[in-house]
Design a binder for these strands. Structure first.
Lengths: 271, 271
DNA sequence: CCCTTCTGATTACGGTACAAACTGTTTATA
DNA sequence: TATAAACAGTTTGTACCGTAATCAGAAGGG
């Protein structure tokens, strides 16, 4: 164990996340650093997706060998944990003076936008998302929004967790919809599957809408004998599973969740 | 393209999911089958997790080479898509005669239980979960619950989608909590990280509760200057981030979501 | 000064998904 | 019935992946 541990109780990944390493005093000065590695990994993920982030490629991007990274990072999983916290640094809360509802709404929407900007966040294994300084700061913002709400901290955390879950779920749906729309547009244009799509018109996007595709699939494959209720719902013209505007979808779900939280708070403070 | 395509418009993975392949007329009879492959893969995942499901291991389990699988399955991703639909076959709706709320509650809880029974479902890449016959049947059940609710089909789908999202999110949290509790119990007993844990007492589980750990980490690392609101919430004794019973957590979140849906329906039918 | 400690590189290993070519079997057709 | 086509499964090989082990050289402390 040639490691220096200022806080032995803490798992090494958490120590690394919170930058609690003490500088060793002997030996050559490191050319690489955790921050440089994480930044390079993020750049690769932004460009080519999370699957493109391999130790070899990160090392290459920095001009070093793959194994050099292991001096600064315990494993690839730890790198991913650092990456997950790194992108939380960009989250910034808009100026907020209103009530808890508008505050939590903004808090959630900012995160959804962040997920749409970096869809590879969704590909991170769940175990790698650990409480790092940036994510905890974002959690702190949420507690700030809920400061004047008079419920126990544990219930605040549960509410915040519910919204955080919703971010992931909604981000998933939207990202997936976007990908499918791209694929649809490609097919419509007769391009190969890996061709880059620069720009999609609104009409084209509506025509290639994945939920429309979903509806088509259901109509085509889900017969009324095996799927009676679905067939009933699909009867009588277009069910309109596809909505034109993503923001409409996002607002729909978020409104429901916030309504649920409001109902909880009313019930909670009533008695 | 030596493939026979009874429905050329349909992507091959969907054709395979819905078993719309026509038997070829020449050549030796296949010894393997898609069903056998999927069953073997599911058995491996149940035993050793999704990471253990490799083409080589699935082939080995069946007594064939890895490459033999590719006669029946286009790619590993397609196998995962089949796997995702396969496990949806076990979902069974309890006898339901009540209102939409109790119906949707049951619909959601059954799924959460299923996720807890097969936690590797959460490790499936999102893109692999496509509408297959079993998942669509489960969707049909949800439409059955909502049959007497008078809103457009598109809104029903949105509500169902919201609950489906919640299943994933809640399952994630619970599975993760369980894993962390195991790790905590292992540490407390001084066992190595890969030791199997047969049985955990309630006291032991409470002591090793991961949310308690989370709280400890926050107290230890999140100082009041950088994280004022969090520190405020953590001040004054135990915040009690950990709850004793998982079912309490599950009910908490689900009640909020259902309350939100109820608020939506009231608003929707009022005018 | 030496000697310890540390950095990054090299090499190697076992694993992955899968492409291509090959052997042998079944069956439709000439 | 002979032949050729279509098919199933195996073999071989490629290009990766994460990372353990080992090594040479650089830097600072005693």
């Amino acid at each position: 164990m040639g490691e220096h541990e200022p806080d032995p109780g803490l798992p090494t990944t958490l120590r690394r996340l919170w930058r609690r390493e003490d500088r060793p005093r002997r030996g050559p000065k490191p050319a690489l650093s955790v921050d440089a590695i994480v930044r390079a990994a993020a750049a690769i993920a932004d460009a080519d997706g999370l699957a493109a982030v391999s130790m070899a490629r990160v090392g290459e991007a920095l001009g070093y060998s793959a194994m050099a990274l292991y001096r600064h990072v315990q494993s690839k999983d730890e790198l991913l944990a650092l990456l997950a916290d790194h992108i939380a640094a960009d989250l910034t809360m808009p100026a907020h003076t209103g009530d808890w509802r508008s505050g939590l709404q903004a808090w959630t929407l900012v995160q959804i936008e962040a997920v749409l900007a970096r869809p590879w966040f969704l590909d991170l294994p769940l175990a790698t998302v650990q409480p790092g300084p940036n994510r905890v700061r974002w959690l702190d913002e949420a507690f700030g929004v809920l400061r004047d709400v008079d419920i126990p901290a544990a219930e605040k955390l549960a509410i915040i967790g519910l919204l955080a879950q919703h971010v992931l779920a909604e981000g998933r749906v939207q990202v997936e919809a976007g990908r499918a729309a791209m694929a649809g547009a490609r097919r419509a244009r007769g391009l190969p599957d890996d061709a880059p799509i620069d720009e999609i018109s609104a009409d084209e996007l509506a025509a290639a809408n994945p939920l429309n595709d979903f509806e088509t699939v259901l109509r085509h494959l889900a017969g009324p004998t095996d799927y009676p209720h679905l067939a009933e719902a699909l009867a009588g013209g277009t069910a309109g599973f596809a909505s034109a505007d993503p923001h409409t979808d996002i607002d729909f779900g978020l409104t429901i969740v916030l309504d649920g939280i409001e109902a909880f708070l009313l019930r909670r403070t009533a008695r």
